[in-house]
Design a protein around this nucleic acid. Sequence first.
RNA 1: CCACCCGUAGCUCAGUGGAUAGAGCAAGCGGUUCCUAACCGCUAGGUCGCAGGUUCGAUCCCUGCCGGGUGGACCA
Length: 665
Amino acid sequence: MNLLAELRQRFAAALESLEPGTVELAEMVLPSKDAKHGDYQANCAMPLGKRLKQPPREIAQQLVDRLEVSDLCEPPEIAGPGFINLRIQDTWLTEQLQATLSDKSQLGVTPVAEPRTFVLDYSSPNVAKPMHVGHIRSTVIGAALYRVLKQLGHRVISDNHIGDWGTQFGMIIYGYKHFVDEAALAEAMVPELSRLYKLVSQLVDYHATRSQKIPDIEQKINEVVARLEEMHDATELEHDKDRKKAAKKLRQAEGQLVDLRKTLDSLRRTVAVVDDDPALAALAAEHSKIGAAVLAETAALHVGDATNKALWDRFLPACLAEIDATYERLGVTFDHALGESFYHDRLAGVVEDLTARELVEESDGAKCVFLDGHQAPFIVQKQDGAFLYATTDLATVQYRLEEWKPDAIIYVVDHRQSLHFEQLFATLRLWARDGMKEIELQHVSFGTVLGEDGKPYKTRSGSAVGLTGLLDEAVERAHKIVCENDDARDESYGGPFLSADERQQVAQRIGIGAIKYADLAHNRTSDYVFSYDKMLAMNGNTATYMQYSYARVRSIFGKGDVDLVALRTGGASLRLEEVQERALGLALVQFSEALSRVAADYRPNHLTTYLFDLASKYSSFFENCPVLKAEDDVTRDSRLLLCDLTARTLARGLELLGIETVERM
RNA sequence: CCACCCGUAGCUCAGUGGAUAGAGCAAGCGGUUCCUAACCGCUAGGUCGCAGGUUCGAUCCCUGCCGGGUGGACCA
C-alpha cells in the first residue's frame, strides 16, 4: 500500500467536510524530515486558516476532529503554528509488513488504479558507430523507468529508435566499395565494418577540416583578435557600469580566443595524423571528394539503389548484433527496435498530410511548420527534397499512435535536443487539433557526463569514450578492489572466502552496477562528473554499498542455516521494539512511495535515495540488534523476518534500476 | 541578440512553499572477544550566486543582475 497516498485520501475527506473545494490541500501531507515531528506531517492548516480567516491552530484542531486515521495513526498532534504531526501505529506497521511477507511479487506495491500505456523511447544508438559514454544515461535511465512503471502496474512499451539509415551507413558503403578486405569481412564482419567506418570517417573529416573547419576557425580568430584590439581602446569609459561591462566582454573574448586556439590546434592535429602517415595521405589525395561521395551513397540507399540496399541488408544484422552484445552486458532489453529505416516510406505521407491540413509553408524552398513562440521553423523537408529527422520523428509518433494507442510517449534524450522536442511537440499539438489524438509528450532530458576537469568526458585525443572500454575498466577496477578486500579479510572472520571465479563474477556485478548506479543516483537534469573512484567507493550512495548491505543480510541466513520458506509461512510474528527496528520497518513500508515518486517526474534518483536510506537504516539495525544471537527465539524470528524483507526490497529496488546483487562479496 | 538549463559545506552531489537546509568524500575523535569493519557512532564545516518582490512562512515561486553551460532554417 502507498501509505502517503492513503493519508492524503484521509485528509482529502476531512478537508472536504470542513470546507468544500479544498481537497487539493491534501497534497500538503508529506513525510516528516525530522523523526521528532512524527512520521508524516500535514501542513495544510496554515493556508486554510488564512483562507477562512481563522487561527491555523484552531483549523488544525477541526481537521483533526474530522480526520479518520485511528486505524493507522496514533492520535495526531498539533504543533507550532499549526502543523499536524502523524505517527504511524506500530501495530499497523507490523500488520502491513506481515502482509508484505507473503506478497511475493509486489512487495507491498499495489498496482495503480488506472493503468496507462507508455511508449518509452531510449538509448537510440547509431549502428556502425560504436556506442560511447553519451549513450549510457539514456539507456540506463530509460531502462530503469521502464521497469519502475511496469512494477507500478502500467503498460509500457519500449522502442529503441536506432539510427540505421543515416550518413554513417553511407560511409560503410563507400568504405566497402573502395577499401574492403574481403577476407577480413568473411572472418569477422563487425570489426572490418568498424575499420571501414573509421577510415572513411577519418578521410571525410580530414578534407572537411582542411578545406572548411580550419579556415573558418582562423577567420573567427582574426575577428576576435580585431575585436579585442577595439576593446582595449574602450576601457577608458566614464561610468562604472559601462567599464564593468566592457571588462566582462573583454574577459569573455579572451576566453573565447583561448578556446578557439585550442580547437584550431586539435584540428591541425587531426590533419597532421593523416599527413604524417604516407599510406593515409595517399588515400586522402586519391579520395579528395569523399565527403560528397558518401552523401551520394547515402542518397542512393534512400532512393532504393539495389546495390546499396543489398549491402545495407547484408551489414545491418551484424551491426545490430554488435549493439545487442552491449545491451546484453548492461542487462537492457527492448520490446521493439524500429529504427529510422522503418519509417522511410511514411515520410512523404507525413509531409503530404501536414500540407493538406495547411500546417506547412514553403520558405527558402524548404517545407516548414511555423510555430508560435519560436524564431526558427520546424523544417520537415529540405530544399533538395530530402527529409530530416524532424520528419522521421513525426512519422514515428504517427506510427506509435496507430499501433499502440499510448497515453504518453516519453523520450529519454539529452538536454541539448530540448529545442527539437519543443518544436516536435508543438507541431504534434497542431496536428492533434486536426485529427490526431492528444497525449502526454515528455522529453525526459538529462545532463552531460563530465570528466574530472568539468568538461564533457572525452579521451585525451578528444574523441568520445567507448562504452565497451568504459565497462571493462569499471569491472577491472572492481576486480582489484574485490581481491584486495577479500585478501585482507582477517583470520577471525575466517580469512578470504571468494574463489577466483566468484571474484570475477562479483567484479562484473559491482563494476557494471557502479556505473549504472552513479548515473541513476544523480538528478538527471544536471551534469555530473564521472569518477571511477567515487562510483566504486565502498561508502556513501553507491551501488557497492547497497550490494554490500544485501550480501550482509544474506550471509545471516547462511550462517544461521535459516529456511526462509519455513520462516515466512511458519507464523512467526514480526515486532518493532528497538528504535532501529521501527525505523527499518517504516522504511520498508515506504518502498511503494519511492516508486510513485520516480514515476511522478521520471526521476530514478528518488529510488536510489530511498535505497540508500533503507541500506543505512539496515546498517544501524545490524549494528544494534543482534539477529542470530538475539536474546530469545521470538526476537530472533522477528528480526529474521525484517532481514528477509530488507533483502527482498533491496534486491527488487536494485533490480528495477538494472543492478544485480551478489550473495557474498 | 534570443531561448532553455545550472549556481547549495573545501570537493562531489541530494533536497523542499514549512519547524534547526542534508549525505558521501576530505579533516578530527571514538567503536571489532559478537551475524561481512566494503560497517557504525560523534565533532567540525553554510549570507542555499547577489538584490528586490509575492507569502503567515522563500534556498524553492516572480523580476532584475552576476557567473557557468547548452541550443538557435534545411546535421542528428
